[in-house]
Write a protein that binds this DNA or RNA. Structure first.
Length: 846
RNA sequence: GCCCGCGUGGUGGAAUGGUAGACACCGGGGACUUAAAAUCCCCUGGCUUCGGCCGUGCCGGUUCGAAUCCGGCCGCGGGCACCA
């Protein structure tokens, strides 16, 4: 009898699929299409078990949709530009291109043995010149359409390495390599006008029915539409031509509690003051050392500097407010200036206590007029409060009402106007780095910034660069940036900035529909395949990548590269959890942790020394913690199907799953059992169907189908375990069991495709199971004649009754009251209430 | 700091207003075997005076009924615009 031998059978079936071209995506207007896409990986060089889970989920959907008669597009590519390649070049020598393409080759070789139903003929990497050349074309089209512009923006500047740093490279305000305190520096940068689409991107979220609510909520909050008041505070004296400060506030109802005005260190007035005061200059420099990330700004201790300027309160010009420069006011949001209301904002209160500024309440709780002490009074805006210093409106009102009243009042008196603002800022795409898509523009002394001619595209990255000193090698390249002005022909300089890698990943989904086209997309292909029916990826991309992609789809429509129907490119989104693993650690002589690989640990001890290890449960896999498992090892030991089955089995897909060796072995045992059953039943002669087994089979078809449809892969697998046990234990003719097992093979085929093919062929299935239509459950076989109802007394389960499926209420009530446990609980008296939920439960209230 | 999640047996989890713990791991017992492995079968939340009682991070609320809904807290994770 043949044994389950995935090492031999898995490559054989992969070869069979390849030979038959089973997974090649072809346009077929006679069938519904289905585009399933997993977020493409960064080519780090090794696939990890998280990739296995992500791509297995997509593969289950892809194979299932093929079986339900769809023309499926399931492509794969590489998000191949980015900093790690440059870091590798700096640290280990070599070239980013060689490193990246080497990694891609390695990862492809690690991925293929997993047997994913991918159309590999469509593969591309974003660093392929064929791809980024088309991206340059898109950029020029967007430039023509007015969707791109240049403005000054702040970056993290390392004053020692003389280079721009990513936020990731700023550690506690210092450059990661030089250790020098980071400064904020202004550079002229390219921007996409994503904020022109703020309203549109916000409103369209309502139509994203296939997206998780949490992601939609995160996007709404990120776009952050808010209504507020914009008004001017006049200054008591003019500074460098500024006689007023424009502020924006979402809480104009609290303006009579304002006790200070604060401006950003990057505000024009702050910059003007900096020129004349060493003290202000020092303070602003201090603020700029925080870098550019919002997190760093928000978590830093709140600091202010009293400028000595005084702002007049708009409604009582005798009342003056001090003007501070504060490190927590962002120049990018609103007007870069705020008024502080310590009574009703915790940050303002902390600031007021620190600088001994007054605290003035404008409203209080209706039932508790206690003054503000250490905690600002910030009730929900729809709660009714008592205004003691309202700007307008009745004494008792909600904040929402008071805000509108205040805006109306200010507009009436001409001191300000209601405005709608968005938190969303324009997308800065310039990067001062080598390994990215060159921005195809030329700087000419006479013509200024000139787009490269389309016939000169692609603007190709030069290969001969060096990474022996910090900064952008394109800047230092002796000849690359020397070119002729596309307009006047004079000698000019190429832009040496490259594009943010988010640009690369904002349209790859569209490129997959015609990856070799001479234009970014091809209308017929894009029209047929778009949208992505199911997109799958990590929750870490919930905001930026998905928002940028939504913007890009609109921009591509505006420039004629996508149909109007594709402006929301992802019909459905699924965010999967991580794969975690225990961490094994011991401690060295100094008490510092030392980490150990899972394969070096057995029964809580190190295999080598017998030393007991500390076990830290369920942590994200990371190389530094050594809690990683290599998919290649799993495949070698158990086969691809075991890895696929296990990553889907134990945990709901949106949650994290913990990899355990014992769990993987159990998965393997189960697959071996199915194979063994197939071997035993392969020769069974045909037999009449067994009624109980038929019912179980159709119940399994229904449940597994429902499970796959609803991303309940773990639930589908639980039902498959049960169905396997049912077949194994059934008291039925071997021929009947063989038929049931064939259905099991089909139901397992999206998860364990190689085993399914093997079993299918052993049992005499025709052709490939990958080509067999998905089984359909017979409703007539799913109807149960009787139903068991639990009986509760006061909400606690005490008994149960078995009733006919269609039993009426009176019948159920009579049986309930006749029940021994109910009789005992009632002790002769009548129930207070009798709740019958048909088909579900009965509750007797005594 | 701000925004978004998550928290259930020894372990991963099931149940999204209706029997808490499906399915699986670990553990225990048994069958088969000269023996072991493999395989198959059974048991497995805690406590119990064997009547039951307790139990879904903690505190409170809504409901005939709450893991599920609401409010507050604690812990963990994701994002915060130059990591991808």
């Amino acid at each position: 009898m043949s044994r389950y031998d995935p090492a031999a059978t898995e490559p054989r079936w992969q070869a069979a699929w390849d030979a038959a071209g089973t997974f090649r995506a072809t346009r077929d207007t006679s069938r519904p299409k289905y585009y399933v896409l997993e977020m493409f990986p960064y080519p780090s060089g090794r696939i990890h078990i998280g990739h296995v889970r992500n791509y297995t989920m997509g593969d289950v959907i892809a194979r299932y949709r093929r079986a339900t008669g769809h023309a499926v597009l399931h492509p794969m590519g590489w998000d191949a530009f980015g900093m790690p390649a440059e870091n590798a070049a700096i640290e280990r020598g070599g070239h980013p291109a060689d490193w990246t393409y080497g990694n891609i080759a390695d990862m492809r070789e690690q991925m293929k043995p997993l047997g994913f139903s991918i159309d590999w003929s469509r593969e591309f990497a974003t660093c392929d010149v064929e791809y980024y050349g088309q991206q340059q074309r898109l950029f020029l089209d967007m430039l023509d359409a007015g969707l791109v512009y240049r403005k000054a923006a702040t970056v993290n500047w390392d004053p020692v390495d003389m280079t721009v740093l990513a936020n990731e490279q700023v550690i506690e305000g210092k450059g990661w390599r030089s250790g020098a305190p980071v400064e904020r520096r202004e550079l002229t940068q390219w921007f996409f006008r994503i904020s022109d689409f703020s309203d549109e991107l916000l409103e369209a979220i309502d139509g994203l029915d296939g997206w998780p609510d949490k992601v939609k909520l995160m996007q709404r909050n990120w776009i952050g539409r808010s209504r507020g008041l914009q008004l001017n505070f006049s200054l008591t004296e003019e500074v460098h031509g500024h006689d007023r400060i424009e502020v924006f506030s979402t809480r104009p109802d609290t303006i009579r509690g304002a006790t200070f005005v604060a401006i950003s260190p990057d505000h024009p007035i702050a910059k003007a003051l900096e020129r004349e005061s060493e003290e202000v200059k020092a303070f602003c420099a201090e603020c700029r050392r925080l870098g550019t990330s919002e997190e760093a700004l928000e978590t830093a201790p709140k600091l202010g500097h009293d400028t000595g300027l005084r702002a007049r309160y708009p409604f009582d010009t005798n009342f003056e407010l001090p003007v501070y420069i504060a490190n927590f006011v962002l120049m990018d949001y609103g007007t870069g200036a705020i008024f502080g209301v310590p009574a009703h904002d915790q940050r303002d209160l902390d600031f007021a206590r620190k600088y001994e500024l007054p605290v003035i309440e404008t409203f209080e709780a209706v039932d508790d007029p206690a003054p503000v002490a250490d905690v600002a009074f910030v009730p929900p805006k729809d709660q009714t409060v008592r205004y003691t210093r309202a700007l307008s409106g009745p004494e008792i009102q909600t904040a929402n009402e008071a805000i509108e009243a205040a805006i109306a009042f200010c507009e009436e008196h001409g001191v300000g106007q209601g405005v709608t603002r968005f938190r969303l800022r324009d997308w800065g795409l310039s990067r001062q780095r080598y390994w990215g898509c060159p921005i195809p523009v030329v700087h000419c002394e006479t013509c200024g910034v000139v787009p490269e001619r389309r016939e000169n595209l692609p603007v190709e990255l030069p290969y001969d660069v060096s990474f022996d000193q910090p900064g952008n090698p394109l800047d230092r390249h002796p000849t690359w940036s020397r070119t002729a002005c596309p307009k006047c022909g004079a000698e000019a300089r190429r832009e040496t900035d490259t594009m943010d890698t988010f640009v690369d990943s904002s349209w790859y989904y569209a490129r997959f529909t015609s990856p070799r086209a001479e234009t970014p997309t091809e209308a017929e292909d894009a029209g047929y395949w778009m949208n992505v029916d199911q997109y799958i990826g990590g929750i870490e991309h919930a905001i930026l990548h998905l928002l940028y992609s939504r913007f890009f789809a609109r921009a591509m429509h505006a420039t004629g590269h996508l149909p109007a129907s594709a402006i929301e490119p992802f019909d459905a989104l699924f965010t999967q959890g991580m794969v975690t693993h225990e961490i094994y650690q011991t401690r060295d002589a100094q008490g510092r942790p030392v980490y150990h690989l899972p394969e070096d640990v057995e029964d809580g001890r190190l295999k080598a020394s017998g030393e007991t290890v500390e076990v830290i449960p369920s942590a994200k896999m990371s190389k530094s913690k050594k809690n990683v498992v290599d998919p290649a090892d799993i495949i070698r030991e158990h086969g691809a199907d075991t890895a696929r089955w296990f990553v889907l089995s134990d945990s709901p897909p949106e949650r994290d799953v913990e990899w355990t060796a014992a769990g993987a072995e159990a998965a393997h045992r189960h697959l071996a059992r199915v194979h063994r059953m197939a071997a035993e039943l392969a020769a069974a002669p045909d037999a009449a169907p067994d009624d109980a087994l038929e019912r179980a089979t159709h119940k399994a078809i229904r449940d597994v189908t429902l499970g796959i449809d609803s991303f309940g892969f773990n639930a589908a697998i639980a039902r498959l375990y049960e169905f396997t046990a049912t077949i194994s234990r059934a008291d039925a003719a071997p021929g009947a069991k063989r038929c049931a097992l064939k259905v099991l093979a089909q139901l397992m085929s999206p998860m364990t495709p190689h085993l399914a093919e093997e079993v299918w062929s052993m049992l005499g299935g025709r052709g490939l199971v990958a080509d067999a239509p998905w089984p359909v459950a017979d409703e007539a076989l799913l109807v149960e004649e009787t139903v068991t109802l639990p009986i509760q007394v006061n909400g606690k389960r005490r008994s149960e009754i078995v009733v006919a499926r269609d039993a009426d209420r009176a019948e159920v009530e009579a049986m309930t009251l006749a029940d021994d446990a109910v009789q005992k609980a009632l002790a002769g008296s009548a129930p207070k209430k009798l709740i019958v939920v048909p088909g579900r439960i009965v509750n007797v209230v005594v």
